[in-house]
Design a protein around this nucleic acid. Structure first.
Length: 906
DNA sequence: TATATCACG
DNA sequence: ACGTACGTGATATAC
């Protein structure tokens, strides 16, 4: 059996993948779709062919795709899309990491390289598979050279294969003759002039009859359509020149050694790093399970003896900087059995001991070769380890960890130590807030160029406690990484924070906030479980009744919660006019159904049904599942999720408890204060608009805030040129929508949707808004302009949000980028401000010795559980700290209420 | 696991 | 002409 080689036309396949696969980006905002598609095609071909050799050819210069343009772009000479250009070096790096030979030669196109290699390999007796998106290469097909053209279809990639005979069958000419056909018909994309008036049909006919341009010219008198005859006669020289241009060089002087192209294992550690960086998760499964060898683990030392541990702590005490982490079993922290009020108020010593039970170990890193995991056990109590760690933190100059908030349950850090402890999770987030998750292995990869096993690699999905029994060695390594990575990466990260002007943001806002959030999470909020239950039961009754009516009016039973089935009933069976369509069928979204509700009572019932089932499943039942033994619900506040700097709340989300509709709002009555307390709710009044007024410096908008309470009314008055007192409620509503729109990165379309008016009318509103507040217009334009230059936007406090979409060639993506550039500084600054307020409110409560505590944050709103006797003081603190969290050119104002439940308080 | 929908700011 | 408001998280269904 002869050996086999696969040759790949790099740019052409990359280009095909780029246009065939929807845009993808990784967490860093790097476009990856073309690389992804390329690799998929590569893997597929290699699996099919199992070749002995592999080589990829690229053009040296690829500033435009003049040559290998895709049909839609034929002849346009557009510069290569930015998203694609970015990916050219990436695919080369990935291929190199896989050990694939890449051939590029100055002065020769990929075609010529491929032609030359194909012919050479054929002569040496190899089977050649030449993979390209470009039909020009068909001229190279022979009995041993197969041209493979992948086509990306919706059903997957199909590959057309052409040996010489297949070319003949499909195009009626041999591969050699194919050159002549192309030369006659010309190709604008390839700058081949051809012969005027001769297209594909005539060209093929001529070559079928005469075999070549030269022979056709020799019989030029016989040529049938007289027009073609004349044209060929007059443009014979041009035809010959076209033939030269269309012919792929097969004798280019290329330095190439077949042995080097021998196909080895593509799945190298380097390739793994790349694919992980690109976030091609499904491709990672192609790698051997064991993770690539690295050097870091070599230095890991597990310590179980007290005497050794003492030595480690002593040695660590001499270091300036350490990395540390505390590993504990999260379940161990859960209170066991019924928590009574008594046990709740018991002294914390017992609580601390209970907590200490969950501690599995502590890891420390203070040098390249000084990485330790101190395992708690018979010889070493968790409590002792924590004491030692705290004493160590006292001594060192600075310390770094990963995900501090998750450790604070066991490691209570005194205030005076806080200013030297940094969390690399938070710094990595500030540096790039676009990623969906931050893991220690990601941080090692990005900032240390180290490939280390992830938690999943080491422990799978085992809870830590179980891992401590079943996977001791892996747990030890996991722990060690959690100290080693922060130790090694923190300096680099902090330097980066300095370079990007986010040092203050990090140390004065984000790090202190971590402690505040932890305390809030611990407090939780009390919920009246019985009231919640009867709320749910009340909903159930209404739902059953509605369900019955809906089935009756629809004439059959179906799953109302299935948009698919609902679409069939409404739009196929009952022939209602459908509005939008989604990619899977009819849209049954609320805004579509609302347009039908007036004409069809059934639709109103469905809308109501949706509302009720939402309340029942997400809130009544959903929240009930989270009530703990002490009657409280504890949400997690995530500090590293949003792109803008806001917090997010999850498990359960307490930032989206209903309020807009009365029925939903009722659920707030189950959120209650503990005995002896009230809830105090304070929310900023239009904080984002005030931030906009300040940031834009628009005098009219600032003035509007200084003189009027009702900003929407004054906006309406100014925008619609009517006296303040005569503003109609419709005008006010419209002005309010415009105000919101401005903050979201206004578009006339979006506003028209919101107000159910035409795009033209919406555009009119926006125009008069900008006439009224020209400073706002200038400010927003400047934001977009700056963002395009710098690639990111910033808040007043220096928080950055990268906006990679602005460099997109895609109109939709770019427009999105523009809106983001307008919105993020405003939303982000508001987020910064309330974070400052939270820290100060929390500190102030404690400084003043009050027992009242912050329990929730809802973006522009803080909720405090306040002891009745402290109410006045707490209200004073809230007002002071919130309104003075930032000094803007307009006053920050809050609305504040208190009550015996959240319904009353807000 | 992805999609559609809907709750909040 | 392109087809949208910005930022989240939870649920149910369908694949």
């Amino acid at each position: 059996m002869s050996k086999k080689i696969v040759l790949i036309d790099g740019h052409s396949i990359l280009n095909r993948a780029f246009f065939g696969i929807p845009d993808l980006t990784n967490g860093e905002g790097l476009h990856t779709n073309a690389v992804y598609g390329f690799l998929n095609i590569l893997f597929r071909i290699l699996e099919e062919e199992k070749p002995d050799y592999l080589t990829v050819a690229f053009d040296v210069h690829a500033p435009t795709f003049r040559h290998k343009m895709y049909e839609a772009y034929k002849g346009t000479r557009k510069p290569m899309a930015e998203e694609l250009r970015q990916q050219v070096p990436v695919i080369k790096e990935v291929l190199q990491a896989m050990g694939v030979v890449i051939v590029e030669q100055e002065g020769y196109e990929a075609d010529d390289i491929l032609g030359t290699l194909a012919v050479q390999c054929e002569e040496e007796g190899l089977q050649v598979s030449l993979v390209s998106g470009d039909r020009d290469l068909l001229q190279l097909a022979s009995e041993r050279i197969k041209i493979r053209i992948p086509k990306t279809k919706r059903t997957g990639t199909e590959i057309e294969d052409y040996y010489a005979a297949d070319v003949k069958e499909k195009y009626q000419v041999t591969p050699k003759e194919f050159i002549d056909v192309k030369a006659l018909m010309g190709d604008t994309a390839d700058n081949i002039p051809g012969v005027p008036g001769i297209g594909e049909k005539t060209a093929t006919a001529l070559i079928v009859s005469y075999g070549s341009i030269e022979n056709a010219y020799a019989h030029v008198d016989e040529i049938k359509p007289p027009r073609a005859q004349n044209n060929l006669r007059e443009h014979y020289e041009q035809a010959q020149m076209s033939k030269t241009l269309a012919t792929i060089e097969v004798n280019a002087p290329i330095e190439y050694h077949l042995e080097e192209a021998a196909l080895g294992d593509l799945f190298t550690p380097e390739a793994y790093v790349w694919l992980k960086k690109l976030e091609f998760k499904n491709m990672l499964s192609r790698f051997q399970v064991e993770t690539p060898a690295v050097s870091m683990e070599q230095y890991f030392i597990e310590v179980t003896e007290l005497s050794e541990a003492k030595q480690v702590f002593q040695e660590a005490g001499e270091a300036e900087r350490i990395g540390f982490s505390l590993l504990a079993d999260a379940e161990g922290a859960e209170p066991e059995g019924q928590m009574t009020l008594d046990s709740f108020l018991q002294n914390d010593r017992e609580a601390a001991e209970k907590k200490a039970e969950g501690i599995l170990g502590i890891s420390l890193a203070f040098g390249k070769e000084k990485i330790f995991y101190l395992r708690a056990g018979e010889h070493m109590a968790g409590k002792w380890l924590v004491e030692q760690l705290l004493a160590l933190l006292q001594k060192v100059k600075s310390a770094a960890t990963f995900d501090l908030k998750s450790q604070l349950s066991w490691l209570s850090i005194p205030r005076e130590l806080r200013n030297k402890i940094s969390d690399v999770l938070i710094s990595a987030y500030l540096i790039n807030p676009l990623k969906s998750d931050y893991t220690y292995d990601d941080i090692a990869k990005e900032y240390l160029d180290l490939m280390i096993p992830s938690r999943i690699d080491l422990l799978g999905k085992l809870p830590l406690f179980q891992a401590s029994l079943e996977k001791r060695k892996e747990l030890f390594q996991y722990g060690a990484f959690l100290a080693a990575v922060p130790f090694q990466a923190s300096e680099k990260l902090e330097q980066k924070l300095k370079d990007t002007g986010m040092q203050q943001l990090f140390w004065e806002i984000e790090m202190p906030l971590t402690y505040t959030l932890y305390e809030m999470e611990q407090e939780g909020v009390q919920v009246n479980g019985e009231a919640l239950k009867s709320y749910g039961e009340n909903l159930s009754e209404k739902i059953i009744e509605l369900e019955r009516e809906i089935y009756q009016e629809a004439g059959e039973e179906f799953n109302i919660n299935s948009p698919k089935q609902l679409g069939v009933i409404l739009f196929d069976k009952l022939k209602m006019p459908y509005g939008k369509k989604t990619k899977t069928g009819y849209s049954t979204a609320a805004d579509v159904l609302e347009k039908l509700a007036g004409d069809y009572p059934l639709v109103s019932k469905i809308l109501e049904y949706r509302q009720l089932t939402k309340l029942k499943s997400t809130y009544a039942e959903g929240l009930a599942n989270y009530i703990e033994e002490d009657g409280r619900i504890r949400s997690t506040f995530h500090q590293t999720i949003t792109a803008t700097g806001r917090l997010s709340s999850a498990e359960p989300n307490l930032q989206n408890i209903p309020i807009r509709m009365e029925l939903g709002r009722q659920i707030r009555k189950v959120f209650i204060p503990r005995e002896g307390c009230v809830l105090i709710d304070a929310d900023y009044s239009q904080i984002e608009l005030r931030v906009l007024a300040h940031m834009s410096g628009d005098e009219n908008l600032i003035g509007a805030y200084r003189k009027a309470q009702d900003i929407h009314r004054i906006t309406a008055s100014q925008v619609f040129h009517v006296p303040f007192e005569e503003v109609t409620s419709l005008q006010r509503r419209n002005a309010k929508a415009v105000n919101f729109g401005i903050v979201y990165g206004i578009s006339s379309f979006g506003l028209s949707q919101d107000l159910s008016i035409t795009k033209k009318e919406a555009a009119g509103y926006i125009e008069s808004y900008f006439e009224t507040y020209p400073g706002v217009k200038r400010f927003l334009d400047q934001l977009v302009k700056d963002a395009k230059e710098k690639g990111y936007v910033s808040t007043i406090f220096g928080r950055r949000r990268p906006v990679p979409e602005l460099s997109s060639g895609n109109f939709m993506q770019r427009s999105f980028g523009e809106r983001v550039a307008m919105n993020a500084p405003i939303q982000g600054t508001a987020a910064d401000i309330i974070k400052i307020a939270m820290i100060r409110v929390n500190e102030s409560l404690k400084d003043k010795g009050l027992r009242s505590r912050l329990i929730l944050q809802v973006h522009d709103e803080l909720l405090i559980e306040a002891w009745e006797e402290e109410m006045e003081q707490v209200e004073e603190i809230l007002k002071q700290e919130m309104e003075n969290a930032a000094v803007l050119s307009v006053q920050l104002e809050i609305d504040m209420k208190h009550g015996k439940d959240w319904y009353e308080a807000h």
